[in-house]
């Protein structure tokens, strides 16, 4: 474990917590007897969260952590895997099933056919992998899928007029975690002999590059202290 990977995991955890906070806000808001102004805005405007991206991430974790009960690495590793699995599936459940949260989900805008991401990633994992076994192919699939899982969310943000802070912070933290992982891979490459994993590295690089334009607009909005807006 090195500082870059720990920072990356904490950033990833933060992104999940921000999303859960946002869902809690929507839930508690609608529970009020009087429609406060914030509540009214929250419930009327779409949450800006892409269910498609959340479903892709649940699939990423489900295929990434197949070995959670077979290969014990550390308590930290197991706990974090359980947190990511539990949070990603519960977020999908909230947006799909929860009577209040689902109202803030704008399915007409979140139209990305994520099936078009799943299939190519699966085919690619069957062709390019480190070992042609069931677990290894699915693990490789989860790396390819995670690299593109943010696309439905980024496209939804372009369509969303006013991106609220929590959603913007969620996407930022999600992008930052993989950028920190790249630093972790560089660190491990120079400190551990034989630590070479091209598939992981290239997938992580592609994933981070997909956030490049979002990072640009995110930092610009911070610098100019204006509302985050992605060009359509």
């Amino acid at each position: 474990m090195n500082i870059f990977r720990l920072a990356g995991d904490m950033t990833h955890l933060m992104s999940v917590l921000v999303l859960l906070l946002k869902i809690h806000t929507i839930k508690s808001c609608a529970g009020k007897s009087y429609p406060c102004s914030l509540c009214f805005i929250l419930l009327e405007s779409s949450s800006g969260i892409s269910l498609k991206t959340q479903e892709l991430y649940a699939l990423v974790f489900a295929t990434r952590y197949l070995d959670i009960f077979t290969d014990f690495i550390s308590v930290y590793n197991t706990i974090m895997k359980l947190i990511f699995l539990g949070s990603s599936f519960s977020i999908v459940w909230y947006i799909r099933r929860h009577k209040i949260v689902r109202r803030s989900y704008d399915k007409d805008q979140d139209t990305f056919r994520h099936f078009f991401l799943v299939l190519p990633c699966l085919l690619l994992a069957l062709i390019i992998n480190e070992k042609f076994t069931f677990k290894e192919v699915l693990w490789t699939f989860s790396l390819y899928l995670e690299a593109v899982a943010i696309l439905p969310q980024l496209i939804l943000l372009q369509r969303t007029r006013n991106i609220d802070n929590l959603t913007g912070q969620y996407v930022f933290l999600l992008g930052a975690y993989r950028a920190l992982y790249i630093l972790n891979w560089i660190y491990r490459y120079f400190t551990e002999p034989h630590y070479v994993h091209w598939i992981t590295w290239i997938s992580g690089l592609v994933q981070t590059l997909l956030y490049a334009d979002f990072f640009y607009y995110y930092f610009s909005s911070l610098k100019n202290n204006v509302k985050l807006k992605l060009p359509a």
Binding site: R5, D71, N77, K81, F84, E130, K131, N184, E192
Partner: peptide
């Protein structure tokens, strides 16, 4: 090289 080392990450 054991590719298990890649599996110790999340």
């Amino acid at each position: 090289p054991s590719n298990e080392s890649a599996k110790d990450e999340l």
